[in-house]
Simulated scan of single mutants.
Amino acid sequence: MSTQKTVRQPADEIEENSLRIGKDKAEQIIDALNTDLANSYVLYHQLKKHHWTVEGSEFLDLHEFLEEAYEHAEEGADVIAERAQALGGVPVSGPSNLEERATVEFEGEDVYDIRTAFENDLEMYGEIIEGMREHIQLANNLGDYATEEILREILVHVEEDAHHIEHYLEDDTLVLESATK
């Protein structure tokens, strides 16, 4: 085990970067990226919970979809964190820091029926989509076209997954209602 205790970079400090984006602009972008990062992990944990707890006749399809969706959230979070670091920042990390930083709220530990769970997910996706669009515009306005492109690519997956959830919430289904109701 290492005995090194030197802090290389305090979490709240921005270092110069080799991307030639000034510290004042980088600070604004890193702040936005850390919000997106925190939101991604809140979404990840909620989707993971639904993956674990989904039941019913459509279990396998929903279980597999939720796995893909939480993987997309985690992949996007990784790219966002690496970009924040490249800009001279420290990616937000740790459960309490992520929760504090997020603008979306985890639904809690209770287990809901899948329709309610997906409604909660769709609401969270909507809030994340709106925030990411604002951050894409911010990056563009500050001349950070690479961050703009990175967020656009992540947004495509976020919107696709939200759209799939929207389809799952439609009333049309092949599953028949139980005759005992």
Rank of each mutant, 00 (worst) to 15 (best):
G56D: 01
K181C: 02
L47T: 12
S18M: 10
I80C: 12
D144F: 08
A86E: 02
E13V: 14
S178H: 11
I80H: 03
N17L: 08
V7R: 08
G126I: 02
Y70T: 01
E27C: 11
R152T: 15
A32H: 06
I154W: 00
S93L: 06
S18I: 09
H72L: 03
T147V: 11
E16P: 04
E159S: 06
L43F: 06
E16G: 13
D121P: 01
A38F: 00
T53M: 08
E82F: 11
Y112N: 03
Q28K: 15
N141P: 02
P95S: 10
E105F: 05
S2C: 11
E75C: 02
L169V: 04
T103Q: 09
L60E: 07
A77N: 09
E82T: 07
V90I: 05
I129H: 00
H167W: 07
L66I: 02
R152N: 15
E134V: 12
G94P: 05
R20G: 12
Y145N: 11
N34V: 05
R133M: 12
E107D: 13
S18R: 07
P95I: 12
Y112G: 05
V7C: 15
Y70H: 04
S2I: 10
S96H: 11
G131I: 01
Y168G: 07
E149N: 15
V158E: 03
L155Q: 03
A102Y: 00
A81K: 00
G56M: 11
D78V: 09
I21A: 02
G131Y: 06
G108I: 04
D31N: 13
E58D: 12
I114C: 06
P95Y: 11
D31T: 13
T35L: 06
H167D: 03
S96N: 08
E105Q: 13
E58H: 06
T53E: 03
E119N: 12
S40G: 15
R8K: 15
V7A: 14
V92M: 01
